[in-house]
Lab assay of single mutants.
Amino acid sequence: MPVRRGHVAPQNTFLDTIIRKFEGQSRKFIIANARVENCAVIYCNDGFCELCGYSRAEVMQRPCTCDFLHGPRTQRRAAAQIAQALLGAEERKVEIAFYRKDGSCFLCLVDVVPVKNEDGAVIMFILNFEVVMEKDMVGSPAHDTNHRGPPTSWLAPGRAKTFRLKLPALLALTARESSVRSGGAGGAGAPGAVVVDVDLTPAAPSSESLALDEVTAMDNHVAGLGPAEERRALVGPGSPPRSAPGQLPSPRAHSLNPDASGSSCSLARTRSRESCASVRRASSADDIEAMRAGVLPPPPRHASTGAMHPLRSGLLNSTSDSDLVRYRTISKIPQITLNFVDLKGDPFLASPTSDREIIAPKIKERTHNVTEKVTQVLSLGADVLPEYKLQAPRIHRWTILHYSPFKAVWDWLILLLVIYTAVFTPYSAAFLLKETEEGPPATECGYACQPLAVVDLIVDIMFIVDILINFRTTYVNANEEVVSHPGRIAVHYFKGWFLIDMVAAIPFDLLI
């Protein structure tokens, strides 16, 4: 008679799926529990143990900040960024110097990925580790590398530091407007667009060049630039800015003055950032001319202004700041037409079709709590990747769950009947059967004279019903998954307890 339990259901295979997918890609990662103190490590794979030199037993239950890997060259700011990422709910990448158990130093890129439950609360953290440099290539500990984003994938490793954006290309926007319009339909740009040429040739750093990471940081200074100062900065030398009595002219307006920039070969870094931020506020060169004239017309309804409409929906549905990093990277690809469009465009503009998908598509409701890094690593669709929660398995109709209350009560009843059979069957065979043979035949009273025979008949009927119930009862397979398919249940029961239950259900007393 089957006594099969499996009270692990309803099970959740999400954690096993993450481990299996990460292991298949030869990654070095740990999984931490966000619900406990210090976000203790609950799993670390073999790749991480080989990377740091510690065994799994030495890593388990330690804080996922990996303070046991810190050393003299470990930056405090990087460690603080990892700790801050564990307090938030967004994906974050941090470069930090770690030390192995043998004392060797290596520069590592740590990717902190939160995993949320159905309520939107962070319950786990996945920390992925990628070695960037070994100890002989690690720089000085005073050099802070965590304020910069990861290198873009479309640049060669040897040319990542030679990417320079020439400031004269930004200063000569109005001069290039006529050349853009003359391109017409034969050019790649839309009317009114501004073409910015980027020099990728390796050259020595000069005062006129600005690194790509500095251009990325310009967006942080746009908020500090007032509207009046932006307007004066875009007017140009024809209309000098008016300053109040006793007030000095704005240095932001002076930063885009061609006369002032041409007199000296070098520009201050602050002026460069502010000038680029001011130019980015204009949607095209037409807006710059309109600002000089004193009238700013409404933005025209053409394809170039609607190019950012799908980007707005993608940004609203993005799951991490990696989408913004990807957008900034692609927006700086050289030799393309940049349409400086305000994100607050007309909502009635139709979304044009684009061959290049900048932001990841909208994630469906079932995966809105899973970050983009987890979705990318697992390579699963929205119909396959579940949320991290207890999910009731989908069972067929008329199927009994093996952990249901009805099955528990039924098993206790069958257990009592088995005990009765084990006690009274030998007793009936030894004593009652002998008395029946010696006594007179009682054929007239039937079952009324033999109450134990009636009980034995009921017990046999219950055993037959138990066999039928076992054909529709779920079970737990070797992978700790609840199986509810009727065919698989029948095959599993035939290979197991079916023969024993059938022999126990045969009414031998009635056959004798």
Rank of each mutant, 00 (worst) to 15 (best):
V8Y: 13
R159S: 08
T17C: 13
R301Y: 09
A285R: 11
P63D: 06
R176M: 06
A97E: 14
A285H: 10
P150K: 13
T367Y: 13
R73S: 14
G53E: 01
S320A: 11
R35P: 09
S26I: 01
C49T: 11
D323V: 04
T145Y: 15
E177L: 06
A142H: 05
S354I: 04
T305G: 12
T367V: 09
L171K: 15
S379R: 05
S320P: 08
M137P: 07
D287H: 04
P352F: 04
Q75F: 01
A303N: 10
V295R: 09
C105N: 07
G345D: 07
F22E: 13
S278K: 12
A228R: 09
A211E: 08
R4C: 14
R56N: 01
R273M: 15
D355N: 12
C49Y: 01
A185N: 07
E357Y: 14
V3H: 15
N117L: 07
A85K: 01
L51K: 01
D286E: 14
A175E: 15
C39G: 08
R148H: 05
Y43Q: 01
D287G: 08
G183Y: 11
D16H: 12
L15K: 01
A172C: 05
M308F: 07
I363H: 15
Q247M: 07
S264I: 14
S209L: 14
C52H: 01
L378K: 04
Q11T: 13
P63H: 03
A193W: 01
R312S: 08
A277C: 14
D67S: 09
H254Q: 13
F98M: 07
R148T: 12
C52L: 06
A303E: 11
R312D: 14
E372K: 10
V325N: 09
S250A: 15
P202C: 01
D286M: 06
A228V: 12
T367L: 15
D67Y: 03
P2G: 07
D16P: 15
P245G: 11
L171P: 13
A169W: 15
P298C: 13
E58D: 05
T162E: 08
G53V: 01
R281D: 14
T375G: 08
A223P: 13
R176G: 05
A97D: 14
C39V: 07
T201C: 08
S255A: 07
A382K: 12
D136N: 13
S209R: 04
D197M: 01
S313A: 11
A290G: 07
F340C: 07
Q25F: 06
A32C: 06
Y99V: 01
R56T: 01
N38V: 01
E289H: 04
K166Q: 06
V131T: 15
T17K: 12
V132K: 13
L343Q: 13
D199M: 01
A156N: 03
T375K: 09
C265W: 15
D342M: 01
D119Y: 06
A78T: 04
M291Y: 05
A156F: 15
P227F: 14
V384R: 07
E95C: 07
R35E: 13
L170D: 14
R271Y: 05
G120N: 15
V384Q: 08
I31A: 01
R356G: 10
N45A: 06
G139L: 13
M133E: 13
L107E: 09
P227M: 13
P241C: 15
L315A: 15
T162L: 15
S320Y: 11
K373Y: 05
K28H: 11
M291F: 11
N220P: 13
E357K: 09
Q81S: 14
F129Y: 07
A40D: 10
S318E: 13
R164A: 14
R328I: 04
P202S: 05
R5D: 09
D199L: 01
G381A: 14
E37V: 07
K116S: 13
P386W: 05
M60A: 01
A203I: 06
A175P: 14
F68E: 01
R252F: 09
G149K: 12
V115Y: 13
G294S: 14
A89I: 08
D197K: 03
L248N: 12
V8R: 11
D199K: 01
N33T: 09
V374Y: 13
S313H: 12
M133F: 10
K21C: 13
R20T: 13
P249E: 05
V325K: 12
F106H: 01
R181C: 15
E177Y: 06
V195K: 10
S250D: 09
T13L: 10
G186V: 09
D346V: 11
